[in-house]
């Protein structure tokens, strides 16, 4: 067993365990913190696949920015288990049925998949390195890339304009 495999198992267990804890935690703040742990574990998986750029962007954007906003909201809402309103019983049942159907569809779809031929290359392959990613983005997909970056920039300018009420 090489070090890659050990890391793979540790990260997988960490990711799955944290994901389960996201769902079963009573306190929403704890859920968010476990979700951050999931993101970190998934970033670790990206690094194992040699996709360093994706790994670090996943950390910066999801774990570093979006989860902070989640935390903001939850911390300010003062959600406690005793102030939590009782949810409708039928709503709970509907949720279970919807989630179960999704699981069923996913399992059915994955059952047919050709797993042996699709094995991920661990620790090799250079498609995820920043140089190759840049080549692809700026040569093959330059128009969509530029359009989306202008969109992001305009969103940022929009925030400043909205904040400029005085």
């Amino acid at each position: 067993m090489g070090i890659t495999q050990i890391l793979f198992w540790v990260l997988s267990i960490l990711a799955l365990l944290s994901a389960i804890l996201v769902v079963i935690s009573k306190n929403p703040v704890h859920s968010v913190l476990w979700l951050i742990a999931v993101f970190i574990a998934i970033s670790g998986h990206y690094i194992l696949l040699n996709a360093q750029f994706l790994a670090i962007v996943n950390l910066i954007v999801y774990a570093g920015a979006i989860m902070v906003l989640f935390l903001f909201v939850f911390m300010l809402m003062n959600l406690n288990s005793d102030t939590e309103p009782q949810k409708n019983k039928w709503l709970k049942i509907a949720g279970v049925v919807a989630g179960g159907s999704l699981l069923l569809v996913l399992v059915a779809a994955l059952k047919q998949a050709d797993m042996k031929g699709q094995l991920a290359e661990m620790n090799k392959g250079d498609i995820g390195l920043i140089k190759n990613l840049g080549m692809v983005l700026f040569q093959d997909y330059v128009v969509p890339f530029e359009i989306s970056s202008v969109l992001f920039l305009s969103a940022m300018v929009g925030v400043v304009v909205i904040g400029k009420k005085d």
């Binding site: 670090i56 950390l59 910066i60 570093g64 140089k131």
Partner: peptide, 9 residues
């Protein structure tokens, strides 16, 4: 080869 991004992360 992503040193600066690592710092940001």
């Amino acid at each position: 080869n992503i040193g600066i991004l690592y710092i940001f992360g």
